[in-house]
């Protein structure tokens, strides 16, 4: 190569360097043209003009309401004032600290001895009284709520339903409320796990939410460990943990990502408020 360049310097300048400049210049123009077109088109709000966002959210809200109605048919929702106040306190604490509008998330306490909690379309979180019964502290419950809020914020719920059922079936359900499909949606969301990556993302976001809200995330790891230990004995009732595999490993991951330097945790509820939840969960079976 040096031989070629040195011996043919004049020829090289004429035949190689000049065309190379031309190629570079034309490539630059092409890239600028591509980026300008891409940037210009991206600035157009196609989602709004084609009603893509509104269809998604409207459909999601409708499905969410149908799912809640479906759950209420088989399980009783506990919506007395004292319980709602306590749940709203927890929700507001996590939401406000993480710049999420509390009005955008709804938590429903449903009577069931299943240890389960899950997010459904329309930004609703369903918590079974069985889960509260198993929680020894409010931070454990906050960990689970943070995890489900993570699924909502990362849009895992709708993505999963779209993957499992398809957009056509979901749109049809939203318009005609097919009860068989609603039942299927409830089954999918309440008794099967998200993809491992999505579960891991929701765990991480939950830890972040809790730390931002000055709630000790160790409670989240505790409930994981606790439920993992109990899992072998009562598999059918331990839905939340049985649908969330590798809980021991996940608890270790949660503990490893907690910022050790943060210790300014403050109580979420008073003792009497927590007792309201616990007593409600314990009574009425």
């Amino acid at each position: 190569m040096p031989h070629f360049w040195s011996k043919n310097k004049g020829v090289t300048e004429h035949y190689i360097l000049f065309p190379m400049k031309k190629v570079f210049f034309q490539f630059l123009v092409l890239v600028i043209l591509f980026l300008t077109l891409f940037g210009g088109l991206s600035s157009i709000d196609f989602m709004k003009y084609w009603h893509l966002q509104s269809i998604n959210r409207r459909t999601e809200d409708k499905i969410g309401q149908l799912v809640i109605d479906g759950i209420k048919k088989s399980n009783k929702e506990i919506n007395n004032d004292s319980v709602q106040v306590v749940l709203n306190t927890i929700k507001s604490r996590i939401c406000i600290a993480n710049s999420i509008s509390p009005a955008d998330i709804a938590i429903h306490l449903v009577r069931s001895d299943e240890v389960n909690a899950f997010a459904i379309p329309g930004h609703h979180i369903i918590i079974y009284t069985g889960l509260i019964d198993r929680c020894d502290s409010v931070s454990e419950l906050c960990g689970v709520i943070g995890h489900e809020m993570g699924h909502i914020q990362l849009n895992h719920v709708m993505k999963r339903l779209l993957n499992e059922l398809g957009i056509g079936l979901l749109a049809a359900v939203a318009s005609n409320g097919n009860s068989a499909v609603i039942g299927q949606i409830i089954k999918i969301l309440s008794s099967t796990a998200f993809a491992r990556k999505q579960e891991s993302e929701a765990d991480k976001i939950s830890v972040r939410y809790l730390e931002q809200a000055h709630i000790n995330p160790k409670g989240f790891a505790n409930i994981m460990l606790k439920l993992a230990d109990m899992h072998a004995g009562i598999p059918k009732e331990m839905e939340w943990i049985s649908t969330h595999p590798d809980s021991k490993k996940r608890a270790d991951t949660i503990l490893s990502i907690i910022h050790a330097d943060q210790s300014n945790y403050t109580p979420v509820l008073t003792g009497s408020e927590w007792l309201v939840l616990k007593n409600t969960a314990n009574s009425g079976y």
């Binding site: 891409f38 940037g39 210009g40 088109l41 991206s42 600035s43 157009i44 709000d45 196609f46 989602m47 893509l52």
Partner: peptide, 8 residues
């Protein structure tokens, strides 16, 4: 789905 994706 996003405006950037549709634009691209």
């Amino acid at each position: 789905l996003s405006n950037e994706y549709i634009g691209y």
